[in-house]
């Protein structure tokens, strides 16, 4: 087997494993739009990277962290729902990114690679970054798992239990920012959110506990990644979209099975 397939598979599996805990937490908190906002903002980070000559990973992280604090700051002024604020942040940062890239002289960026990912060209160095960042993300997720779950179920009860709700939210949002910075190159910024949401949603009908859903999401994610890479290799189609196609087919099967066979209603 070619080495680039091994690298692509390893990177994809790692991303799928990271998506499981983050995706579950995003789904339970109805924050998919926030994930989309971060990934849109990543494009501005890419432009900033080319402008400054710094590695895009760091400039994406910088812009995403900026968006997190901008959102938390804007939320303090009552009057607009966070849904509206996210919509403004998401699309304006995407537009700023596109305009900035167009303005850069003598530069032709393969935009498609950032929008839809280029997992087959990933290097060992990229992979080691994902391993290091991934370990950090998993450690943070395991530390905040129970308190965040508690605050999702009932914020006031979590407060009475002594959890610092706002601090937890900030830590979670920053972790998502790190995740987006790490994975933009792998699956592309337009497809990151689907890898967060779809495996978690696919696992839901078969889960009786949060942890079962977490494991289910990890399995679905890994299967989707492997299937997508195989499809891409076999039929010469782009890998990022192929992974999401595989994931969404798995979701369709899970949905139909739960509604038609299990007759679940929730």
């Amino acid at each position: 087997m070619d080495e680039f397939i091994v690298r692509a598979s390893l990177a994809g599996i790692l991303v799928a494993l990271l998506c499981a805990p983050l995706g579950c937490l995003v789904v339970w908190q109805r924050m998919s739009y926030f994930g989309a906002t971060l990934s849109h903002a990543a494009l501005l980070g890419v432009a900033l990277g080319f402008l400054t000559g710094l590695p895009p990973k760091f400039t994406i992280l910088f812009v995403c962290v900026l968006v997190v604090f901008l959102l938390l700051g804007l939320e303090r002024f009552k009057g607009f729902s966070s849904d509206t604020l996210l919509g403004i942040l998401a699309h304006s940062s995407l537009a700023f990114g596109l305009v900035a890239i167009a303005l850069l002289p003598n530069l032709r960026i393969d935009l498609m690679a950032y929008l839809f990912g280029d997992i087959l060209t990933i290097s060992w160095q990229d992979l080691s970054w994902i391993v290091i960042g991934g370990i950090l993300i998993l450690i943070i997720c395991s530390r905040i798992w129970r308190p965040v779950l508690s605050s999702i179920v009932h914020p006031d009860l979590a407060f009475v239990d002594g959890h610092k709700i706002e601090k937890l939210r900030l830590v979670f949002l920053l972790t998502l920012a790190v995740f987006v910075a790490l994975t933009t190159q792998v699956v592309g910024l337009l497809l990151i959110v689907s890898l967060l949401i779809i495996p978690a949603a696919t696992a839901r009908p078969f889960s009786q506990s949060p942890e079962q859903m977490l494991i289910g999401a990890a399995i679905v994610g890994v299967v989707a990644v492997m299937t997508g890479i195989l499809l891409s290799f076999q039929f010469d189609v782009p890998a990022g979209p192929s992974i999401v196609v595989a994931a969404s087919l798995l979701f369709a099967i899970s949905f139909l099975y739960s509604k038609v066979v299990l007759k679940q209603a929730y």
Partner: peptide, 21 residues
């Protein structure tokens, strides 16, 4: 509190809910 309103996507048994506290 009077009640908890759970998001339908969060699977949670009574037992697990108690252990969260």
């Amino acid at each position: 509190p009077q009640s908890v309103s759970l998001d339908p996507t969060l699977p949670l048994t009574v037992e697990r809910f108690l252990r969260l506290g």
